[in-house]
Simulated scan of single mutants.
Amino acid sequence: MTEDFYCDEVLSGKTEVEKVLETNNVLAYYHTKPFWPVHIVAIPKKHVSSLITLEEEDNELLLELLHVIRKVAAIVTEEHGACRVITNLGEYQDSKHLHWHIVSGEAFR
């Protein structure tokens, strides 16, 4: 896997994705290799390494990102009865680009 799949593949257009919701600064789309029956990823279009590297000037971006996550989570919860909203940090974060997973169902084994 590349260091930043989201910049290198998704945002560059090299990897096509099925969009769920898009704003000027945020993209939510169905995961290309889902781990759950419903698996949506929300990312900022600007490169931010992770949640803990956000800078003060990223506050508006974070608010927009959370707004998209909230809308997508509401849709998933309405359609499937429940969802999880997950972000990973450190060694758990495969791609070093801030991203959130909105998922529902039992994880694939």
Rank of each mutant, 00 (worst) to 15 (best):
V85W: 00
N88A: 05
N88P: 11
I75K: 15
V85S: 06
Y92V: 03
A74H: 10
N88T: 03
E78F: 12
E79P: 02
Q93E: 10
I75V: 15
G81A: 06
H80F: 14
G90E: 01
I69N: 06
H80A: 06
R84G: 07
N88F: 00
T87S: 13
V72R: 05
A73W: 04
V72L: 09
G81S: 07
A73L: 01
A82N: 15
V68E: 04
A74K: 09
E64N: 08
R84K: 03
E78C: 09
G81H: 07
L66I: 12
L63S: 15
G81E: 07
E78A: 06
L63I: 14
L89G: 12
E78K: 15
N88R: 03
H80K: 06
Y92R: 14
R84V: 09
A82C: 11
G81F: 03
T87C: 10
V85F: 02
Q93W: 00
H80Q: 11
L62E: 08
V68S: 04
I86L: 02
V85R: 05
E78G: 11
T87G: 11
H80S: 12
V72S: 06
L63C: 15
R70F: 02
R84E: 00
Q93D: 09
T77Y: 10
I69W: 10
L63A: 15
L66T: 11
R70L: 04
V68F: 01
L89D: 13
E78Y: 10
